Computed example of a mutant assay.
Amino acid sequence: MLPATLTARQQREIDFYKDYAQRQRVSSIDFDPVLGHEQRPWNPYWYVYQLVKQRYVSRKQRLLDYGCGIGIASARFARLGYQVDGFDISEENLAVADDLAAKYQLASRCHFAPMTAENLNYEDNSFDMLVGIDILHHIDIQKSIEEAYRVLRPGGVAIFKEHIEAPIFEPIRQSSVGRWIAPNETSQDDHITDDERKLNNDDMTAINGIFDRVEEKRFTVVSRVDRMIPQCSVGMRARLQQLDHYLMKACPPIRNLGGTVVLTCHKSHL
């Protein structure tokens, strides 16, 4: 359940998702990222699913969908075989998640509850894996990562996909010209809330200070221009992501310019 007292930021998030959950309501889920044979290592979302798939061993494994939203990822994890718990600050989001799990006969393997990332109502060492997709930039990093570490079992892994500040590009992005070309004001359509921000060096220092080992893989260098291309198609965006993938393989230092990161955070065995 949600805390009796919420911060102003948390209340703004709740208010935002009251509308968002209905505007973006979905009725079907594509399970190809976890059940199909295709791999898309240039796509950060598909890369997360591949990491989760690689670590699947048995149907007894518990996975926490950390900030589950409307539950699309939760259903995919459950279809793969995990026992899934998901939390979100928005009860409207969770209502959609419940409906989707029921539609795909996954209700017995998906359990959702309203919570804040800063105050999880799970016991210590509860989960084999924790996955957070586009959530850290909405929350208090220090408190939330401490909670994530607490509920993860020794030997467990937490995977986070996030937007991150990148040298060279960030000053351009935050300039008046950059904001004019690609506004970042609050938007239901673009899923931008009042308080979200990209991860910065201080956030990365906090994450590395809490987890025992953190690996990162960067994405989004050239492909960041997709927002500047009118009516950029899905196919064009994929080709830009593939270009990034091959550029980073050919010239590894380019990875430091990536504006998207997937973090694989390890909790050591006792």
Rank of each mutant, 00 (worst) to 15 (best):
Leu2His: 11
Leu6Ile: 11
Arg12Tyr: 02
Glu13Asp: 13
Ile14Glu: 04
Ile14Gly: 09
Asp15His: 11
Phe16Gln: 08
Tyr17Trp: 15
Lys18Phe: 10
Asp19Thr: 14
Asp19Ala: 13
Tyr20Trp: 11
Tyr20Ser: 12
Gln22Asp: 12
Val26Pro: 00
Ser27Phe: 10
Ser28Ile: 00
Asp30Gln: 04
Pro33Ser: 04
Pro33Val: 05
Val34Tyr: 03
Gly36Trp: 07
Glu38Gly: 05
Asn43Asp: 15
Pro44Gly: 11
Pro44Cys: 11
Pro44Tyr: 12
Trp46Leu: 11
Trp46Glu: 14
Val48Cys: 08
Val48Arg: 07
Leu51Thr: 03
Lys53Tyr: 04
Gln54Lys: 15
Ser58Asp: 13
Arg59Lys: 12
Gln61Cys: 07
Leu63Phe: 09
Gly67Glu: 08
Cys68Gln: 03
Cys68Pro: 05
Ile72Arg: 13
Ala73His: 01
Ala75Gly: 02
Ala75Ser: 14
Ala78Ile: 03
Arg79Glu: 13
Leu80Phe: 06
Val84Pro: 02
Phe87Gly: 01
Asp88Phe: 06
Ser90Asn: 09
Ser90Lys: 06
Ala95His: 10
Ala97Asn: 11
Leu100Asp: 11
Ala101Gly: 15
Tyr104Lys: 02
Leu106Trp: 02
Ser108Cys: 00
Cys110Val: 13
Met115Thr: 05
Asn119Val: 12
Leu120Glu: 10
Asn121Tyr: 01
Asp124Trp: 05
Asp124Phe: 04
Asp124Gln: 11
Asn125Lys: 13
Phe127Ala: 06
Asp128Arg: 03
Asp128Gly: 06
Val131Asp: 07
Asp140Lys: 07
Ile141Arg: 04
Ile141Met: 02
Lys143Asn: 15
Lys143Thr: 07
Lys143Glu: 12
Ser144Arg: 08
Ile145Thr: 13
Ala148Met: 14
Pro154Phe: 10
Ala158Gly: 12
His163Pro: 00
His163Tyr: 01
His163Ala: 14
Ala166Ile: 00
Pro167Ser: 05
Ile168Leu: 15
Ile172Gly: 01
Arg173Cys: 02
Arg173Ser: 11
Gln174Phe: 03
Ser175Phe: 04
Ser175Asn: 04
Ser176Ala: 15
Ile181Arg: 03
Ile181His: 01
Ser187Gly: 09
Ser187Thr: 07
His191Phe: 15
Ile192Asn: 03
Ile192Arg: 14
Thr193Cys: 09
Asp195Gly: 15
Glu196Cys: 11
Lys198Ser: 12
Asn201Met: 04
Asp202Val: 06
Met204Asp: 06
Thr205Lys: 14
Ile207Val: 13
Phe211Arg: 06
Arg213Pro: 00
Val214Phe: 10
Val214Tyr: 06
Glu215Met: 00
Lys217Pro: 00
Arg218Met: 04
Phe219Ile: 02
Phe219Pro: 01
Thr220Val: 05
Val221Trp: 05
Val225Phe: 10
Val225Cys: 10
Asp226Ile: 02
Arg227Asn: 10
Met236Tyr: 01
Ala238Met: 08
Asp244Val: 07
Lys249His: 11
Lys249Met: 12
Cys251Met: 10
Pro252Phe: 10
Pro253Lys: 09
Pro253Ser: 10
Ile254Tyr: 01
Ile254Ser: 06
Gly259Asn: 08
Thr260Phe: 03
Thr260Ser: 07
Val262Phe: 05
Leu263Phe: 13
Thr264Tyr: 00
His269Glu: 12
His269Phe: 11
